[in-house]
């Protein structure tokens, strides 16, 4: 797989490591009433879709940026690559 890095252009998948579902960006509020339940779900439960999947990749052998890669799990086709920072800020996080 080639990952089209937004800053560096197409890079080989071997330069990256994958963490998993990009939902991990949305860390629950630790002060919420049901924080224990929220953290259980956040840490352990996955949608695991057959089709488009948004996931966090780390450019470990490159510029060490975190990316959100949208990839089809049925075909391995990569349809979109964004900087995780931009995604996190767009979702209301401060960084």
């Amino acid at each position: 797989m080639l990952i089209d890095h937004p800053l560096l252009g197409p890079r080989d998948e071997a330069e990256f490591v994958i963490l998993g579902d990009a939902g991990l960006i949305d860390r629950p509020d630790w002060q919420a009433e049901d924080a224990a339940q929220l953290f259980h779900d956040y840490l352990h439960l996955r949608d695991n879709p057959a089709g488009e999947h948004r996931e966090l990749w780390f450019h470990e052998q490159g510029d060490r940026s975190w990316l959100v890669v949208t990839r089809n799990t049925l075909t391995h086709e990569i349809v979109r690559v964004e900087l995780a920072r931009d995604v996190a800020i767009a979702r209301g996080r401060d960084r």
Binding site: E13, I18, A50
Partner: peptide, 10 residues
Amino acid sequence: GYNSYAQRGN
């Protein structure tokens, strides 16, 4: 290492 339903790897 990545999620897949493709029954083939890289």
